[in-house]
Amino acid sequence: MSRLSVPDLQSATGATGEIYAQLKKAIGGVPNTFAAIGAHGPAALKSILAADAVLASGSLSRRDQEVIKLVISDAAGCHYCVAAHNHLAKLAGVVPTALNQIRSGEPTGDTKRDALVAFVRKLARSSGTVSDEDFAAIKAAGYTDAQLVEISLAFATTVFTNVFNRINDTEIDFPAAA
């Protein structure tokens, strides 16, 4: 059971109720993490959803976005987000074998994806400025300057939900990552 209380989704009112209604309409339900964030910080949830809308309109594929979020969540040890982004990556077309390889740090055989995974994993596990070699590698893999901005945005929103779920111990409502 999650640590923060969440009101009945049907009876939520105000800004929280509006966000829940939008989520139900858009995706058919309200994931536990969004329910808890919205119950206690509707403006924070709106900002995360707005950032996700920016990513959706950008040039990074949905697959790449979910791979980024999976790698960051795995590095952070956020079990909720690993389950969520593993599931969402499958829905975006990443095959289960590749997901297992990504989570275990093995190459997938997709050179561009592997470069993205390596770059994001280094970002998640290090501090300071990215090395010239790492920058050159992600650029050589074909990622544009605009996509580096999008990678940064995906990273930032994922860190927020990772930290929140670790604080809340959010009950996982996605299939476990196998």
Results as ranks from 00 to 15, higher is better:
D169I: 06
K122V: 03
V30R: 13
H40G: 07
I167E: 01
A176N: 11
V30S: 12
V54K: 14
C78L: 09
M1L: 09
V71H: 03
L153S: 09
A51T: 14
I37P: 06
N165Y: 05
A146V: 09
E66R: 08
T97W: 00
A36W: 03
P7K: 10
P107F: 05
A83H: 04
I72D: 00
D114L: 04
H87W: 13
A44Q: 11
N32W: 09
K46N: 12
P175H: 02
A56M: 11
R125E: 12
I167M: 13
V30L: 13
I138P: 07
L123T: 04
V6T: 14
V95C: 02
F34M: 14
A50I: 03
G41Y: 08
N165E: 08
V71N: 03
I151M: 04
K122P: 00
N86E: 08
A154G: 15
K46C: 00
R62F: 06
A75M: 09
N86Q: 07
L9F: 09
D132A: 15
A12Y: 08
I19H: 03
S57Y: 01
K25G: 12
K112F: 01
E18V: 05
I172A: 06
V30F: 12
G17R: 12
N100P: 00
G28T: 10
I27H: 06
A36Y: 03
I151L: 05
R125Y: 00
P107R: 09
S47P: 00
S61K: 14
R121E: 05
P7I: 04
A137R: 11
K112W: 01
I37T: 10
F164S: 09
C78A: 15
S73T: 02
S131M: 04
S59M: 09
T158W: 00
P42N: 08
G58K: 10
G128F: 09
D114G: 06
T111M: 05
F164P: 02
D114M: 05
N168Y: 02
A26R: 15
A176Y: 03
G41I: 01
A92G: 02
S47W: 01
A156R: 01
I27G: 08
H79R: 13
V120S: 03
V71G: 02
T170Y: 01
R103C: 08
L60Q: 11
K69L: 00
G142D: 04
H79N: 13
Y80G: 06
I138N: 05
I72H: 01
K139S: 12
A51G: 15
A43K: 15
I167A: 12
V95Q: 11
K24Q: 15
V163S: 10
V120E: 02
A50F: 11
Q10C: 03
F135W: 10
R63A: 14
G142Y: 03
R62H: 12
S57W: 00
T144F: 07
C81P: 06
V82R: 01
D173W: 00
M1V: 08
S61E: 14
V6A: 13
I102Q: 01
V130E: 02
I138H: 06
A140L: 03
I167Q: 02
D132M: 06
L23H: 08
S61C: 13
Y80T: 04
R125D: 05
L123M: 15
A176D: 12
H79P: 00
A141E: 07
L49Q: 14
I19W: 01
N100K: 12
D64I: 06
K46D: 09
V149S: 06
N86V: 01
